[in-house]
Design a protein around this nucleic acid. Sequence first.
DNA 1: TCCTCCCTGTTC
DNA 2: GAACAGGGAGGA
Length: 283
Amino acid sequence: MPELPEVETVARTIYPHIHNCVFTNSELLKLSSLHPLSMPLSTLTGMRICKVSRRGKLLVFTLEAADSYIKKIEVPQFLIIHLRMTGRVFSTKANEASGNHTRCKFGLKKPDGTPIQLFFDDTRTFGKILVATSKILDAWPFWHDLGPEPFEINTQEFAKRLKGTRALKSALLDQTVIAGIGNIYADESLFQARILPGRAANSLSGKESNALLSAIKDVLTRSIAQCGSSIRDYLDADGNAGAFQNTFMVYGRGGQPCKVCGNSLCKTRISGRATVFCPHCQK
DNA sequence: TCCTCCCTGTTC
DNA sequence: GAACAGGGAGGA
């Protein structure tokens, strides 16, 4: 399930394949995979991919008009893909056929003229494609309200954002509080910081909230270094699995012994999400 | 602030 | 054949 480290890995691995490629045609195979606010896919034609980046869990392709003589009334500046649970993005040769779960195919032309394709596959069809101007992005509440990047937030700002009496884990999953954290990295970060997931968000001492932010940054950094976590579906743009799942301390380990103290790990549900923690190590 | 729903493949 | 996986929208 792609969270920040996985999306970062996809952005890094897809970039060399499609940098400076120009859209020639696009085919939407599943209507619901297109975000309601999206411009038509046809507006991509003639646009060049000049950058691939990540914002939270969103994959962001930055576009520019390939030819100065293209005079469209409104040209899209971004192609945004949210992989959600099972989305995959990868490039293929020009004549590659769609798979069972291919939701969108983009025809591209490399700078040397070679045609290739960019596929968006998504088994559970939760993922979304959004072709947009910056004006459309501003009008998209999710984008507009997206919290700061974990690597860009400072300790004071982070502490300020942990308000309210809801469970700390709920706050970490809330993308308006901090961007990019999902179920895996919430549990792993809370364990590393030795803080219980059910604690009220506003109950942390200054020392604890600093420890939590440090843990988040450290966990995410280590995961990116291992190309993310592959649980069920996730593969990067080159079809490679990540390796961070091999170092999970708590996620998916309910009932198993804690790797630090040996006591049995507890499994519960917070915000409807499976949550695993060590009742002995975490306070 | 919490719950339900969306969706499909895998596991029990 | 039910339970489960879960990010985010939308409603209670």
